[in-house]
């Protein structure tokens, strides 16, 4: 195909990308209405020293790391068992793990309101056992957010780990076993290192998703456990404070770019090693 002709195929796409994404995003971040870049960066500077803002940033990063660890810790075993299984149920179980990705976040998160709410299953069960007189506050806590985000992003971790583990030749497991390594040692010194690129992809996707998710901290964290996403919404739609909204958006964007950059740096290092 001719170079000029194929470039023409890009024109509608570029136009849409510029108008529907790039230009508005750059203008919002660096030149919000009524203020300017200087004000956004000044607000950003105050944000990084203000205890209230810092608490929200730290909560977002901390919960993001916990959720990432949980998703990789639970998702890798699922991927490993499914990839190594010869059972005909493995396909069904894999589909069950992927299916939630198609399902609305609102639907998936809503279940936790029934489980953790004041009249919810966990609270009622605890009262019924006689361990406590009144159901403890479970909803609108960091625990609720962690559970909700883990549910949301675990399928992503399973898929990324699965495609990595499936590429590791099961013959290598057997070779390690044959050379005298135990099951546990084979897992940690053969399977895990060889599928580490998939684990890194999984961790990156989960972390980036968890620190930017809105529905979960909104429904399960409430206004008491704000994260960057719920704070960003409050700045832009409740108080309409454009400089603060842009500064919060910058923090979120930089956070995501940072982990993506680290992850691809790791990928390159892995490729050349």
């Amino acid at each position: 195909m001719h170079s000029r002709k194929s470039a023409l195929l890009l024109v509608p796409g570029l136009a849409f990308l510029l108008v529907g994404f790039l230009v508005p995003t750059l203008l919002m971040l660096f030149s919000p209405p009524g203020t300017g870049a200087a004000e956004v960066f000044a607000r950003l500077g105050r944000m990084l020293t203000d205890p209230y803002d810092l608490r929200i940033i730290w909560r977002t990063v901390r919960l993001g790391l916990i959720v990432t660890a949980l998703c990789v810790g639970l998702g890798f075993p699922i991927a490993y068992l499914l990839a190594r299984s010869t059972s005909r149920w493995a396909g069904v179980l894999l589909a069950l793990a992927i299916f939630p990705l198609l399902l609305s976040n609102v639907v998936r998160t809503f279940g936790w309101l029934v489980i953790l709410g004041a009249n919810g299953a966990v609270g009622q069960a605890l009262v019924a056992t006689g361990l406590v007189d009144r159901a403890p506050q479970l909803l609108y806590t960091e625990l609720a957010i962690v559970l909700g985000l883990t549910q949301l992003f675990l399928p992503l971790a399973v898929i990324s780990c699965y495609s990595a583990v499936a590429q590791v030749d099961p013959g290598l497991d057997e070779a390690a076993r044959g050379l005298g390594a135990g099951r546990v040692r084979t897992f940690w010194s053969v399977v895990v290192p060889l599928s580490s690129p998939g684990i890194v992809v999984a961790a990156t996707l989960v972390f980036a998703g968890a620190v930017t998710a809105y529905t979960t901290p909104y429904l399960l964290g409430g206004s008491g456990q704000r994260m960057l996403a719920t704070q960003l919404y409050a700045y832009s739609s409740v108080t309409v404070d454009w400089a603060s909204a842009s500064a919060t958006a910058l923090v979120m964007t930089v956070l995501v770019f940072l982990v993506s950059g680290l992850s691809s740096a790791f990928g390159r290092k892995g490729a050349t090693a």
Binding site: L81, L96, L103, G111, W112
Partner: peptide, 27 residues
């Protein structure tokens, strides 16, 4: 699921519970 890998199997079960049980509660 493989019963010869008890730790991995337990973690996997926990993972499925977190992913799917809330959806059952909705229904």
């Amino acid at each position: 699921m493989n019963t010869r890998r008890p730790v991995a199997a337990a973690l996997a079960v926990a993972g499925y519970v977190v992913m799917l049980v809330p959806i059952l509660f909705v229904v």
